[in-house]
Amino acid sequence: EDTVTAVHAFPETLIYTKSFLSFVDKVNEAGKGVVQIEVRGGPEAIGMFQQPDAVRDGIVDMVYTPGSFYGGALPEKDAMVTSNLTAVETRANGGTALMDQIHQEKMGLKYLGWFDSGVCYNLWTRDAPEFDADGNLNVDGLKLRGNAVYNAFFSNYLNAQVIDLPTGEVYSALQRGVVDATGWTQIGLIDLKWNEFLNYRIEPCFFSTDLGVIVNNDKWNSLSPEAQKILQNVAIQHEKDSVEALRAKRDEDFAALEAAGMQVVDLEGDARVNYLAAARETTWERMKTLMSESPQGDGNYDTLISLYYDPAADR
């Protein structure tokens, strides 16, 4: 029987971690006598941002983390960030296979699966958002909390200087008015209780979560073919299951928020198109620049974009 050790980037109580843990349960059920995943813990065991290095160096065999936490080493993860597809489509069209190949080449990692996809980010504000004459969002005077995922968009397009706060400090920062707006995924605002202070959700949502399971390549190759098969199959199944589970959860969260008075404000017309295009293009730009600086170059750039972004799906 093979044993695979694992850590996850976020605390155990967060919804995304629960999703990963249910994947682990499924593997351990299907893999009886063949392969078992042994979870060593979350950020209390290895720091959030140190986990990608830990799996690369073989300290731990498997990590569940946003690709953005190792975006310096693998700028290609921005293809997932800007994606308007889910893991089900990118698995089918070969996008995930290419992502796996790039992980192997650049980091010596097996990219097992893109979980919890199909969830995007909104901008959430305390006060009613303001717009200029053309209907574009006006961010002057917004105290905006940032994060590695959407900083490029916020600062390069919206021209905002972000206040970078760890998730745990956002609640009191909102309470005291240190920040009055933040990006966050569609799900999870209620768990963090930020809805006590945030009253507006700005649509459209942008970006996508980029949480995935990465496995040390040497470890992967040392597993029996049977173990590999179980891990891969369960991962592919979980890619699909997690999309559905999180979509249901999103609808539930949105309904609860709206019942409690959350207002939804839509950007319209050109402003909407420009907003989405900017989120995408500033991020693509960062991706292309960083890719071209790496020894492997930016040869995969166009392929990645075409596999992870479908213009038709935006309409």
Binding site: S68, Y70, G72, G146, S155, D164
Partner: peptide, 8 residues
Amino acid sequence: RRDFDVRP
């Protein structure tokens, strides 16, 4: 490895 620390 040309590692980066990813913050803002």
